[in-house]
Write a protein that binds this DNA or RNA. Structure first.
Lengths: 341, 341
DNA sequence: GCAAATAGTTTACGCGCGATAAATTTTAGT
DNA sequence: ACTAAAATTTATCGCGCGTAAACTATTTGC
């Protein structure tokens, strides 16, 4: 690093011995200049530690390198984890990701989308809140900005949808539970916040019908995103009122299951597959925490890597001009057998 | 919203009947213009949905309204939670926060700081990785950008430090454990990733000495940020080798405790305060998940609200020109008594 | 009602870069 | 070595806004 401070691209071009337009071109796409000039420029960057002014760059660029990543709730490790993977893919592809959380609030989701417009993103990876979302606001945003929906689908919005096959999720784990013990009942929120909950319930009903078994859905009270507490309180109620018709409980998601396990503990109900256990509990999502519950939670896990890769690749393809009709990609989950069921 | 599209501030000033410089002044600080003109401008904003171009705005502004928030690991709910609170304070104070995670990697932390320079932030709220951090890079960054350190302190860097009083944390919970049963041993990582771990160990040693009791530190193997797994594996080893000299285990942090509880479950060791329990386990942090372990985890909780408020207020004060000597604010934690100890 | 203080307007310029066209140089292909 | 293609240079414009100075209009205090 030299002592001389480079004020702008003009000065930088001078010291690197390359004209400014070519330097500009380099920063837009390093591959677009000759190897010899690239070497000169990169030597100068190394020497003077120059970086073009982001604001001046993006002001007149037709397309920025910005990518927005929006998740419903960043304090949920599931979303934090998938956001992390998406962020990495963006950086590797030469984009500049910015992370946003809707904080579980539709109004805030709309605010986030508006903030997002301000940075004129080349594309957005959006996991919407689902039915709670302001559908009109989403629609308007998708009309203006290339947006790829992931995790939960809302109509046929945006470029495409990439997520998990929730139907397969529930069918698969229901199948497992039926084959290894009593058929499961389904534990969920009466008014699910989680956007995929309805699909999972339906899949449970279908799977049970296929087995010729009577389905039982236990819908517990509670609103918002505090799933563990909702699961815990709902579990207490359900045990007290004898709402579980079988010894096997399939939860709509892992966070509800985690809360339910706490309720089991507090009620003195032994959970697991052993002969001395009273109930089996299973979740769905492959939540980072599911390994560490007591007992460890049997669940069906999202294909985190595959989903995030497919989602980001699809967005980058669209940004690069590849036009494809709207499509929905749903990846299968992997059953994770642990001690809880 | 009218049909006519406003292309820039010039046009917007025209339709609102106010000169462009005054409009510019309004967007810089709405309070700086007369009430009557503010009303005119806001009516026009409502009507035409105009927003100034972010990039053009920030290009020549002496100071942007950007604030960077950096945490070591966003997939850790503790950091996600405090980041969420900081974000809210920034928005309320009229700033534009952007969230970054170091992903537990010093090299990435340095990258994040460099990206941060590009957005020319008015200030940064930084929770460094701690001893793993590239100290030189931090120092250079703090010299250029008003930076407030939180969660973990590194030298006397930046404007100030705001965080929890880890000494008090460990002293307080050690005191509680000593008074209610056998004195605790201390369960930690041999090479702690968590920056506050050393302070906590020292505080444990001091507290035990004050009680006139022999301290016992169990340092387990493991690197990185996968604390639960490290706690679980370390727990297995410690139980197998009979490393716990007393029936009470104080963990360096809640995530280690969560892993240890899983180990206890897997070993068939009953945890809790009851007469039929073998060990007591306590954590430190007030981790969002600690309520839902089995048994629920006794811990000492950060004053999340107070820390985030104090940190953001201190940064805003500095941005607004208030000069104060470097200071360290350490807030006390609150003991949360649950069934595990 | 007057002068001083405050707020707003006009005019003018600059920021750092993107984009483009035309002229020139370099490279690749035969 | 010759030509076509590709890369680079030169020159120029514009983006949308910040900022400053000088001037004018409005408000405020007495």
């Amino acid at each position: 690093m030299s002592s001389k401070t480079i004020r702008n691209m003009e000065e930088f071009a001078a010291v690197s011995g390359i004209s400014r337009p070519t330097v500009s071109k380099y920063f837009h796409d390093p591959e677009s200049v000759r190897v010899s000039t690239r070497a000169k420029i990169e030597a100068a960057i190394e020497k003077y530690d120059y970086r073009p002014n982001l604001y001046a760059m993006n002001q007149n660029r037709k397309l920025t390198k910005n990518v927005g990543i929006v998740v419903p709730l960043l304090t949920d490790p599931y979303f934090a984890e998938i956001a992390r993977k998406l962020e990495r893919h963006c950086i590797e592809a030469g984009y500049h990701p910015t992370l946003f959380s809707s904080h579980g609030d539709p109004a805030h989701e709309t605010d986030v989308l508006n903030s997002l417009r301000a940075i004129r993103p080349a594309g957005v990876l959006l996991a919407p809140l689902g039915r709670a979302s302001d559908h009109g606001a989403l629609e308007r945003f998708c009309a203006d900005v290339p947006t790829l929906l992931f995790d939960s689908n809302v109509g046929e919005l945006g470029l495409a949808f990439v997520g998990s096959d929730n139907i397969q999720f529930t069918a698969h784990i229901t199948d497992y539970l039926c084959r290894t013990g009593e058929p499961p009942c389904f534990f969920e929120m009466k008014r699910p916040t989680n956007p995929n909950a309805h699909r999972r319930r339906q899949s449970y009903l279908d799977a049970m019908q296929e087995f010729g078994l009577e389905p039982h859905v236990i819908s517990v009270e509670g609103d918002g995103w505090d799933f563990e507490e909702i699961g815990r309180l709902g579990g207490h109620t359900a045990f007290s009122e004898g709402l579980f018709p079988t010894n096997t409980i399939l939860c709509s998601n892992d966070r509800l299951a985690i809360g339910l396990l706490t309720a089991c503990y507090e009620k003195g109900v032994a959970v697991g597959r052993g002969p001395d256990c009273t109930v089996r509990v299973a979740g769905q999502d492959g939540h980072p925490h599911s390994r560490y519950t007591c007992p460890p939670l049997t669940t069906i896990s999202h294909a985190y890597d595959a989903v995030s890769k497919a989602a980001s690749d699809a967005l980058f393809a669209a940004i690069n001009g590849q036009v494809t009709p709207w499509s929905s990609t749903r990846l299968e989950g992997r059953l994770i057998l642990r001690d809880s069921a």
